[in-house]
């Protein structure tokens, strides 16, 4: 079989296999790239209400029950913490409740994971470690093959000896130019 035909066959089939992961990595890449502007993994909602009064003679457990009842939270309490004499934090599944005894403010911070995006980010950033590390390595090698084989797929004036050459050079110069701009 001619080498160009073999390259095309491999490029096609490896391309099919890599398509799913490429989509996941690309979407996650955009999401994580803008981490300064948003939270790519969780949707966090904060809200504050002010209670009319907070009884001063309650034990910590009684206070927890009082606060939960006041805000209508029915989740199971995981733990509590007092950051200062005037504050009480109550940890419920998916909700953190901060009570300020002085201002009578009750601040809630509820979070939900961003469906599919968090999973994609976890895979992209290799959170699972272990065997996923090698799958991600294989994917990187596959992308390398797709990039290099892609250069030699087309013959003629649009191939690597013509238009393809200049476009490839442009693609290499973009990161080089930015690197020089930022670091020199």
């Amino acid at each position: 079989m001619h080498w160009r035909k073999l390259t095309r066959l491999l490029h096609r089939d490896i391309g099919y296999i890599a398509a799913g992961l490429t989509v996941i990595y690309a979407i996650s890449g955009i999401a994580v790239n803008h981490i300064q502007d948003w939270n790519p993994n969780y949707k966090i909602e904060k809200s504050t209400i002010v209670l009319d009064s907070i009884p001063s003679n309650l034990t910590k457990d009684e206070m927890v029950l009082f606060v939960l009842k006041s805000i209508g939270e029915t989740g199971v309490v995981k733990n509590t913490f007092r950051a200062s004499p005037n504050e009480l934090e109550i940890f419920v599944d998916g909700n953190t409740i901060l009570v300020d005894y002085n201002t009578k403010e009750v601040e809630q911070e509820k979070f939900n994971t961003r469906f599919l995006l968090k999973e994609s980010n976890d895979l992209h950033l290799n959170k699972p470690k272990g065997i996923w590390t090698y799958i991600a390595d294989l994917f990187a090698v596959a992308l390398l093959f797709l990039a290099i084989s892609g250069l030699f797929m087309i013959k003629g004036k649009n191939g690597i000896k013509g238009r393809g050459f200049w476009l490839t050079i442009a693609g290499i110069l973009i990161p080089v130019a930015f690197w020089l701009y930022y670091y020199l």
Binding site: N41, Y42, K78, N79, F81, R82, A83, S84, P85, F91, V92, D93, G94, T96, F111, T113, D122, L125, N126, K127
Partner: peptide, 24 residues
């Protein structure tokens, strides 16, 4: 009471999810 300590890990090496909040 009123004391806590920060446990800083290397970015990406260990990642603590939000749902660990409140756990031992």
């Amino acid at each position: 009471e009123f004391e806590k300590i920060r446990f800083k890990v290397e970015d990406g090496v260990i990642v603590f999810p939000m749902d660990t909040k409140g756990k031992k």
